[in-house]
Design a binder for these strands. Structure first.
Lengths: 189, 189
DNA sequence: TTTCGTTTTTACCATATGGTAAGTGGATGC
DNA sequence: GCATCCACTTACCATATGGTAAAAACGAAA
């Protein structure tokens, strides 16, 4: 499983064998089942995750108490609750497995050790993180001002593999509609 | 006008008099009137802006051809079309003055010269940029899964000063509703 | 297999929102 | 001052979406 991370990082930057070993041993492999919480809102998120297989979703509770999905993330993505992780503030989002998932986890403290051991590693992670932030914004912006049917079609275009792997209700929550509305839209297709 | 930028930067990091001069001379002061375009979608955005006074909005055209607002930005904010600026790709967003605005502009090439002249300046800008990206996502996420009335109230809470300074139709576009609906909601309040 | 629980679909009705249109008000320019 | 333009409001109707409920489909566990 750690190989997936090494392969991913090597796409951005060469890593010596020693560096690879440091990274591999610093991350802890975990398996989650659909619905498992990797992190619960209300706490400070002190872990960074790398998804090796499966789909993860970032969730939050809206003002009416309904659970909705802010983002889907899949293999070859780092994820955490960034503002909480960086600023040590309480997070209002949770991290949940949207289907069975293999994940590598590292604590903030261990990550900082890695930053000291591998020159330029922080910059590498920061760069990947920033790119991901921009992607998230871009995807979300595309939904703005579109009706639910258009949002659903956009979603299928942008993230076709997610549709097949996660429960429909999660997608409805992501698109900001009820499962009933989504069902209605799908009937037409 | 450049003083506003120096004051802002000093909140994050000390700057010597020499560094201040370098920065001040590198940025070009400009004035825009409501509706003026700072940057037009369809091109590569090669400028970074710092807003000294006024409100700027990031706009895009949706699939039906309607112009909508992705974000509002005000004094003491840097803004550009980041993915376009970083990756030299064509931008699908424009930058427009939402009211009369004083802005400092710097080209990508001049900025890179500054990065070379001032140690740690790139890291400073990157840090500010990343924080802004997180803020944008946080603000947008808050609107997800809320009805238009709730979104309007959230907007007034989060960005009360914007409401007073920009045309209503821009706010409607930002909230993903028509000016008529917004008018209806305001009548209730 | 059967049973149970959950997800998804379908149906019905109430309601919020969009579209079109027209009227009002304020600002700008002649 | 007057005319013009644009933003904003209001009204009306058509429609998409939410809410509630129940049925159907699916999967997991006994």
């Amino acid at each position: 499983m750690p190989n997936r991370l090494i392969t991913f990082l090597q796409q951005h930057r060469f890593l010596t064998t020693d560096e690879q070993t440091l990274i591999t041993t610093a991350f802890e492999p975990r398996h989650y089942k659909e619905g498992d919480q990797l992190f619960k809102a209300g706490h400070i998120c002190r872990e960074l995750f790398f998804i090796c297989d499966g789909v993860i979703r970032i969730t939050a509770t809206n003002q009416k108490g309904a659970e909705l999905t802010h983002f889907f993330l899949k293999e070859d993505s780092f994820t955490t609750i960034l503002y909480s992780f960086n600023n040590e503030t309480v997070a209002d989002e949770s991290i949940q497995a949207a289907c069975n998932a293999d994940v590598l986890a590292i604590s903030k403290s261990k990550l900082q050790v890695l930053y000291g051991q591998i020159a330029g590693f922080k910059e590498l992670i920061d760069q990947i993180t920033q790119q991901k932030l921009m992607d998230k914004i871009k995807i979300r912006n595309a939904y703005l001002g579109e009706d639910s049917e258009t949002r659903y079609h956009l979603f299928m275009q942008q993230q076709p593999d997610i549709v097949r792997r996660v429960p429909l209700k999660d997608i409805a929550g992501y698109l900001g509609i009820t499962p009933q509305s989504l069902s209605r839209i799908r009937k037409k297709y």
